[in-house]
């Protein structure tokens, strides 16, 4: 058994193709991004080595730290919203009639491309014609908020569609995980007289804790490098009020022709994610060992 399960050739055969692919297509760009970060380069013409200057500038760049804070807030909101998705999945995976149909309907928005989602929410948030403000004025609120123009609101206004956009992604993962729990366990608990809530809390959640941890990590990483809707809906504005790290990096690299500095931001973003991910894994590791 052990011999077969530790056959070096099989391990190599199973892992090398994928490893080769990510080493060339992901690690080479990562290394080059770090390298470009050491350059004064507009991304077009020649480059000049300037050592750690870009990274030093980064430390004192208030706009960068502001965008990093926004990204971090998004990560917190995303992780918080996982609880909601989990609840929905628990209900859908339970033995209720029509669960299958509800599940399919719930996941439909996930199929929409970011282009469509952005257009939809721009129309929801439109200051005068928007769904939101039409509703607010109809119930007698005279000066409804200018969702995407108000520097104190815009960040939270943009979080809502982002979190909604990913609902399907997490629900489908939780759903598959919950369906993976052997029915016998649940039935045994029922016979013991456990309520659905108890079954969910005491049996199901512990059993899928592995996948919950995975989704926490995914939500954090995904949030810290998030770009799409912010770019289309607010372009980081007004004046950086909804800027996140990835959109800031993009602007530096592709609009301000400061590819060197943009790369430094990109590389720093990666290091930051690495640290945060390490911390999360560390915080959840002890339970990991007990679980399996």
């Amino acid at each position: 058994m052990n011999q077969i399960m530790s056959d070096k050739r099989v391990i190599a055969l199973y892992t090398l193709p994928a490893l080769l692919l990510i080493l060339t297509l992901i690690y080479v760009p990562i290394v080059l991004t770090g390298y470009y970060g050491l350059m004064d380069w507009d991304g077009i013409g020649g480059m000049e080595f300037i050592g750690l200057e870009n990274y030093a500038n980064l430390i004192g760049d208030t706009m960068f730290w502001r965008s990093a804070w926004h990204s971090l807030l998004l990560a917190l909101f995303s992780v918080g919203s996982l609880a909601l998705y989990l609840t929905v999945s628990l209900v859908l995976a339970g033995n209720i009639k029509g669960a299958d149909m509800f599940r399919k309907i719930f996941l439909i928005p996930m199929l929409l491309s970011s282009v469509a989602i952005a257009q939809l929410w721009i129309r929801i948030y439109h200051p005068s014609n928007g769904v939101m403000n039409r509703f607010l004025t109809s119930i007698g609120i005279e000066n409804p908020p200018m969702w995407l123009a108000d520097t104190s609101l815009v960040l939270f206004a943009i979080f809502v569609p982002i979190i909604w956009q990913y609902a399907g992604f997490y629900i489908i993962i939780y759903y598959a995980a919950l369906k993976n729990i052997p029915k016998e366990l649940e039935e045994a608990a029922k016979i013991d007289g456990a309520s659905p809530l108890q079954i969910a809390y005491k049996i199901k959640l512990p059993l899928i804790s592995g996948i919950i941890k995975v989704t926490i990590v995914l939500a954090v990483i995904g949030s810290l490098k998030y770009f799409d809707l912010i770019y289309v809906m607010t372009d980081g504005g007004p004046n950086g009020a909804s800027e996140v790290m990835a959109s800031y990096m993009y602007k530096l690299a592709f609009r301000s022709n400061d590819f060197g500095y943009g790369s430094a931001v990109g590389f720093f973003l990666l290091v930051l994610i690495l640290i945060v991910t390490y911390l999360i894994r560390k915080a959840t590791a002890s339970k990991d060992e007990v679980q399996y």
Binding site: I26, A253, G266
Partner: peptide, 13 residues
């Protein structure tokens, strides 16, 4: 090694 692959922003690549 694989997990780090999640972390790079697309536009850097």
């Amino acid at each position: 090694l694989f997990m780090v692959g999640l972390m790079i922003p697309v536009h850097s690549t």
